[in-house]
Design a protein around this nucleic acid. Sequence first.
DNA 1: CCTTAAGCGAGACGGTACGTCCAGTCTTTTA
DNA 2: TAAAAGACTGGACGTACCGTCTCGCTTAAGG
Lengths: 199, 199, 199, 199
Amino acid sequence: MVPTPNPERRNERSRRATLAATIELIAARGYGKVTIEAIATQAGASKQTIYRWWPSKAALALEAINDYIGEAIDFPDTGDITTDLTTQISEVTDLLTGPIGTVFRGVIADAQSDPSVGAALRETIIEPRTRLCEARLAAAVAAGQLRADVPTRVMVEMLYSVVYYRLLFGTDELDPRKTPAFLEYVFTGLRPLPPRAEP
Amino acid sequence: MVPTPNPERRNERSRRATLAATIELIAARGYGKVTIEAIATQAGASKQTIYRWWPSKAALALEAINDYIGEAIDFPDTGDITTDLTTQISEVTDLLTGPIGTVFRGVIADAQSDPSVGAALRETIIEPRTRLCEARLAAAVAAGQLRADVPTRVMVEMLYSVVYYRLLFGTDELDPRKTPAFLEYVFTGLRPLPPRAEP
Amino acid sequence: MVPTPNPERRNERSRRATLAATIELIAARGYGKVTIEAIATQAGASKQTIYRWWPSKAALALEAINDYIGEAIDFPDTGDITTDLTTQISEVTDLLTGPIGTVFRGVIADAQSDPSVGAALRETIIEPRTRLCEARLAAAVAAGQLRADVPTRVMVEMLYSVVYYRLLFGTDELDPRKTPAFLEYVFTGLRPLPPRAEP
Amino acid sequence: MVPTPNPERRNERSRRATLAATIELIAARGYGKVTIEAIATQAGASKQTIYRWWPSKAALALEAINDYIGEAIDFPDTGDITTDLTTQISEVTDLLTGPIGTVFRGVIADAQSDPSVGAALRETIIEPRTRLCEARLAAAVAAGQLRADVPTRVMVEMLYSVVYYRLLFGTDELDPRKTPAFLEYVFTGLRPLPPRAEP
DNA sequence: CCTTAAGCGAGACGGTACGTCCAGTCTTTTA
DNA sequence: TAAAAGACTGGACGTACCGTCTCGCTTAAGG
């Protein structure tokens, strides 16, 4: 590593080229087959410059993702939690179906062996978005649209974990069109539906 | 690789030592920091012998896991699906909290870059157990304990994906004691509970 | 470095190719412009293999020289020290005019910064040949052809240092035809010659 | 390199500090272990400034040597060539025993790979001093103290090459007290001394 | 019983990428 | 406009593993 460089003097062109090269190469060859040397070459940067600003390929990929998806997209709030979650989960599913999905899978993979990657992953991606989602869910609870006795954090996990399960295990297709049905299952539960009251 | 070795002449002692070394080393140092050379040394085997029987570290780890957990544990069937799933999910959670969890996370990580690892993972671990679970769920559906209009495959994902989410992201503690409450959420759904009918 | 490899299992073909590549490349590009990577590539060897057997480029070059010039050429002994030294010094001059000269200059250069190279240079090249020369000079002293009050080691230095001076500084041409005159100067000294006795 | 800087605006303090740092660091760590970056840091100069005025570490070292030893010391002329050479060679030996010796060895080393360093070395150090020495030797020849049929350039080499041989190979100690005996060998030659005429 | 062919431990090999270091250039700021 | 500071490209360094390859040694089977 390099001793505490000065961020003000950083070359922005080199930074952008490096992050772009990271996504391009990973999307094209797969995370595991991309080396830092290849990224450096593709970006027209030197390895030293990369190591000056990022400690690992995973850190690079993580920043590339964050740059790509931009500011923490505000959670939609139309007043109806079902509508809003459908929108949101579909968007996430869409995103993970494209090149970012490949990059993301690689970062999650590296996080399994490198705790600092796991921490960075949680801090820069998972937790901020989880908190936004929790806030929206809390509002829905307050509006009487959701149970008050289920921790919002657990709700978030119930809503999103299936997406990651499919992303990582490849057992089922990631398809935004499945979102509404899935949400209905989560909201209504798996118990048999009671007979509708007759009018 | 070596051209089709003869499994009958295989040295069982060497095989066991290798699988044991795999789990020990991965549990001790983490999946990513364990090399095949280290496993060979620890097992008193030669690298050649390992490559003769396993194509990759992930394949080795996968077989080590399967050997460790033994026969596909039959899904319990007490007649009550809640009881049975509580038992089963708690057991899985327990397992993934120990050394096998570390090995498993490594295999999942490698599966993200190597499709053949993904396939092997699904075929030897995920799918067989998923099918057992689906069968039990189908029985519960038939017994009127679960909705008939939700694919059992989706039910399995809803029940287990949260465990893997926590395992891989480390956002929440893996704790078997949380299983009953979680099951209640999944079965009853997140909508507010209707007021109990007065007696 | 690699932990004490077993010389018996060494690949002789690889060793020869590496030493040959060393001389070829240094002769073609100059010592300083040759990298170990280039030698490895040219020899069809891997860097690791080179580092397994040689600690540095200089060590490689030194062994290449020794292999090239073969066994310590016995010092000639015709009975006449002038004849023998003429032969010997001319041969050394010839050798240093060719590719070996370039390699040799590089090793001497590295010896200035790396004491272990200096030691190896003395032990494998300088000292063995110095001792052979001293032995021949001692015989000449015993035969009354040379002064007995000058240490043979100093004689060796007086006889050979000019060759290295010219090799390293490039102040004067290295030309074997200059050897007889030079020897006459060293043997007779720089003082004016006394007038010959008339017959 | 920078296109022809204006020497008049040069910062003399920076120049001195750089040359001083060069000698200090090389004396302390050895020529090969000193980098231009280290010299810049030690001198409180920037790398750019160093590259503006010197093309290489060797050029820097060469100028440092020349600054250190000051004006080309005039060759002494007492009328007796033996006395004068003893003085001169002893001084050179003394100089090369100290820090300048280490710097000098480094420059000679670099000259083996970089012809421009060799040229600079000859032009700024070797040749000027050689010419002074040749002039003194020519005077001695004219005075009948030395042979007229030996080129003075060869005499210079015979007188000084042994010093460099010992400096570069480290085969023998550089000791000014050995100078008189050595001179006697060179002047009288290695042939056995004829019996002194009886009085 | 004795060959013989396979699996085995050992470890050297060609390769690839690692993360570091320094050369030499370029840019920004200060005096 | 020189100089200090230091980020930059480029490229070699020496290391670590990969997956392949010989090499003897052991071991079980078949002639």
